[in-house]
Design a protein around this nucleic acid. Structure first.
Lengths: 229, 229
DNA sequence: GCAAAAGTGTTGAACTTACACCCATGT
DNA sequence: ACATGGGTGTAAGTTCAACACTTTTGC
């Protein structure tokens, strides 16, 4: 049956990954310094070409894994970019994905090979092609997602404190929240489990660790519950 | 420089259009009955293959125009669908777009050639490939867009009455709104202009026409105004 | 004159925001 | 003992949701 489409043109298809990471201080973006053409030596998102028998989602996972060594990461398609002249070296339709990782957990060894570096959002380098456009869009999408779904937790380790969580949200939205109001709201969802243990790194007194209760969250969602920050 | 990518595979790329229309009664979706292979005789979204020197957005506009004869229509990319086996006749990555049109204004002649038909959302036919998935996603996206941006107006003619507008929103969200609350809110945005004229079709008394004030809306948006239904 | 849709305000409830002090601990 | 960040409650303001009757006019 494949001959049905023979009259049509084929195109290169790539995936590009916008990789967000959080290190308890700042929200950051992982970029690579290209040591290949075109635009060698410039900063870029990590990308790769779609293979023949590969779902596009799988391609994005592969590309993310090639740079970070990570698997099972939150990855969502942003949208595709298909202007004829977006890549001066050829006509490539690129599908952008964004990933959320705990930026402490990733393979420094591998990423060093790609000359990868974390950049804070307020201090991004110039990126090749339309990659800056992709990043802008990804930030907007991340904000929307975080308002209505608890994906922020993807950027944190299993255990985290409320001040850490608040800081994360502040980074994502670029604003400050009132400590009391933030706690009240986030705890009212009843999707966090308070642990016995305290984190003593952040302060002398120490802050209680919490963990995200996936089971409780699914229950709530099935009952039409509406998460909204 | 084009030889840089020669080692990589190329793929067929298509665009598919989810075309929403409103006829003052119901929100509808325009589908075509395929008289070509594969899946000849089944219902499908209108689609087409990406050409060599064509931006993907332009391809979507072309495909929309081929079916409806319309130009300058609200068209937004949804996302791409790239599972290897989504199309049994070959590996095709499809980029889905959704369009909003006033379903009174379109070329019946052309669309008849495609055996096109409007379906209400509650009574959709079975669609080929992953087109139902695309439609589901498009409906969700439309709802979100309509909540935060006044795109609903794209589905209406220049002049419309408040009861018509309310009905449109009710169709989109699948709920009923309180007449008084709806008016209060929509008028409070100050983006509608009341006209002298009345529509006498919908009722004996007649309802005042309004028009969307694009200038006023841009002004408000530039001042950080937040539209939200 | 009556049926059918258009138009119009108010009140209580829920939610959001603003705000200041004590606590625990390492140094 | 003091500096540092963690933790807690309340009151005012705002927004949202619920609710019923009058108006106009074609038949």
């Amino acid at each position: 049956m494949a001959e049905l489409y023979l009259q049509h043109k084929k195109h290169y298809v790539a995936v590009d990954c916008i990789i967000f990471g959080f290190d308890m201080q700042e929200l950051k973006l992982l970029c690579i310094k290209r040591d290949f053409e075109p635009q060698k030596g410039q900063w870029s998102l990590m990308g790769g070409f779609l293979e023949e028998d590969e779902d596009t989602d799988a391609a994005a996972e592969r590309v993310l894994n090639e740079l970070t060594g990570l698997q099972g990461i939150y990855l969502e398609q942003l949208q595709s970019y298909g202007n004829v002249s977006r890549d001066p070296a050829g006509r490539v339709v690129s599908i952008a994905y964004y990933a959320l990782i705990d930026s402490v957990k990733f393979d420094r060894e591998i990423s060093r090979n790609f000359h990868a570096r974390w950049f804070t959002l307020s201090d991004l380098p110039e990126l090749i092609f339309d990659h800056e456009q992709m990043v802008d869009k990804a930030i907007k999408r991340l904000r929307r997602r975080c308002r209505f779904q608890p994906v922020g937790f993807e950027l944190l380790p299993e255990k985290f404190t409320l001040p850490q969580l608040q800081n994360l949200y502040e980074q994502i939205f670029g604003t400050k929240f009132d400590k009391r109001n933030f706690r009240k709201k986030i705890l009212s969802f009843d999707i966090l489990q308070k642990l016995e243990e305290k984190d003593k790194d952040g302060s002398k007194r120490g802050a209680f660790y919490y963990s995200f209760d996936h089971v409780r969250y699914s229950e709530l969602m099935n009952n039409g519950f509406n998460f909204e920050i």
